[in-house]
Nucleic acid binder design. Structure first.
Lengths: 338, 338
DNA sequence: CCCTGGCACTCCACGTCACCGAGTGCCAAT
DNA sequence: ATTGGCACTCGGTGACGTGGAGTGCCAGGG
């Protein structure tokens, strides 16, 4: 177990390094933080911290830099989430209050988060599987072509084109629409397959084919690929970090374009509370020098989706966590109002 | 007027520079392109080309680099659009054919274009103002809350939440829905305001407020901000250019995040045929070292939107133009099939 | 009149070298 | 356990020299 002061030294190293982006030495530490001990003592502490793997030196005769393990300890034990300032909170509210629909909420949120943290922001649309069905609409676009529109309590709207095997009459359509809504409206999505399974049976033989087509189209929207959508913003902020460039920024951009990767990442995070994944804790190769701060958000207690930021491991964790948490709360409020 | 050979020299310079990314000298030119003249002659030609502003040297005793004006001449007079190879064409077709709805088509297109050109791809959704209304749907989500769903012939679906001043009965809703569709279905969007202007008059006084609210919400979707949507992909490709980085890549990323900027850019392009805007021809400051190749696409002769790529001025113009044109054609075909 | 070979000149890129300074580890003293 | 002292390491920086690619110009030849 590390002594109290050594933890204090680690905290100071993290804070300084995050601020200056340069390896921090023993002398500078004692000057900038009043540790009440001499540089030599700090050196001993640093040697111990390095021994334990919390910090490292890029090369002999350079200052120390926190390792992933060091950041982990910092986040777990040494850092408090920094609440936003009053003006910041007001800015959030003003910015989000103008949203007119879910797309708008998500779009504004991602811009807001990127601006607030000066990092890359990621916002997931409310997951279908955690929403309830508000309404299912069936529209006839052409004799043998339907459009299925799905609306959730979180305001999400999914549509899908359907090619019918045979033309489907307007009355049958109304019938199907009514029965479908009778079954699923107000129900949770994961229940839907079970609830509609026997629906084709109650239709005439010749209509059954179309009904089945419609249903399978409905069930397809629950497939992961369409189920989880997300939006990314603030990628320009990536250019603020290091100039190694092709080694640092490219893999990150590539990873960000692979939404699947991000979805998996967010999926691995805890459902409630904030999750911080640091450096190599992220499975994806391109993201081993970044940290991901994410949190669930939702209109009630339960999270319907996640949002967060992606930034360099050397980031201001307390500030970032504060911003992420605050934004998630406001978004939850907005959602609850609808 | 420049002699034939001088144009040939310019072409050679552009080709070599695009290939090597390094200033090209007279000797290398004569070796790699059989110009049938000596380096000294080429030097004279180069001096003339520089005099005219088509090429420049980064510093004395370095090779020459094309200027924006040089690229412009190259594109206008010296380059042919390079048709795609058969495998490439097949790849496009395979990749786009699997799309299930418009979102999917646009998403696939942007990925395809980014991969094909190895640059940043931009795809605009079919513009509402150039589409016709296929259907307008009104759903009652809560007593005083409606959802307006708008479907175009291009497959685009826009939805909007509406808060009604007073609850609106189901029969009135059906009435409004029917009359609305009677007026606008099959009509072009720009006609819509005119067509619905007198609609509130035919309703009872107490319903008029809600009807007006619905109509103004419908008209709002025609406002530019929601009217034009676009998707961007392949930003990771930006890292392939130069390492000046904060001077080159950041402003571009920032510009790309400002969809408004891109929309203006695309808007300035010709409606039919391909448009190439080179370097400083782009009004936006962040894009003065990039070129934008764009082209309209649509299901018929008329373009409903544009797509294109953003890359460094030093790009393979013939190849890029070929890819952009081919993709636009295929997307048009896909759209026509729906 | 245009093309060509020759020649002197210019500068960037690159490698070498020396030096400075921040930072370290270790040790003896308190 | 803490501290001051001291020798050592090593990356960053600037000065310097050199090589080479490239240029402009000029005189001679088709």
């Amino acid at each position: 177990m590390l002594s109290e002061r050594r933890l204090e030294v680690l905290r100071a190293i993290v804070q300084d390094y995050v601020g200056t982006e340069e390896p921090v030495g023993s002398k500078a530490l004692t000057e900038r933080h009043n540790l009440q001990v001499s540089p030599a003592t700090v050196r001993n502490d640093m040697a111990a911290l390095e021994e334990e793997g919390y910090i490292a030196q890029p090369h002999t005769s350079a200052g120390r830099v926190p390792t992933d393990k060091g950041y982990r300890l910092f986040v777990d034990k040494l850092a408090d989430v920094k609440p936003l300032s009053a003006p910041e909170r007001r800015a959030i509210q003003n910015f989000l209050d103008g949203a007119v629909d879910l797309d708008d909420v998500v779009g504004r949120t991602v811009r807001l988060l990127a601006q607030l943290t000066r990092q890359v922001a990621v916002v997931q649309y409310p997951s279908l599987s955690r929403s309830t069905v508000r309404h299912v609409e069936l529209l006839s676009l052409a004799p043998a072509r339907l459009m299925l529109v799905l609306i959730t309590d979180t305001g999400r709207v999914e549509q899908r084109l359907i090619d019918c095997p045979v033309p489907f009459g307007e009355t049958s359509l109304a019938e199907l629409r009514a029965r479908l809504n009778g079954r699923v409206a107000g129900q949770r999505f994961p229940e839907v397959p079970r609830l509609v399974a026997d629906l084709p049976d109650s239709f005439d033989l010749e209509e059954r084919g179309t009904v089945s087509t419609v249903l399978s189209s409905l069930l397809e929207t629950l497939v992961e690929e369409t189920e989880e959508r997300l939006v990314i913003g603030g990628t320009a902020n990536l250019t603020r970090f290091g100039q190694d460039f092709t080694l640092t920024i490219r893999p990150v951009l590539e990873a960000l374009e692979e939404h699947v990767v991000l979805l998996r990442l967010l999926g691995e995070a805890k459902d409630s509370g904030m999750t911080v994944r640091i450096g190599h804790e992220n499975a994806h190769e391109g993201l081993t020098s970044t940290s991901v701060v994410s949190v669930g958000y939702g209109s009630g207690d339960e999270a319907v989706a996640k949002l967060g930021v992606v930034g360099p491991t050397r980031m201001d964790y307390p500030g970032t966590m504060g911003a992420v948490r605050a934004v998630a709360r406001y978004v939850g409020q907005i959602l609850a109002e609808n």
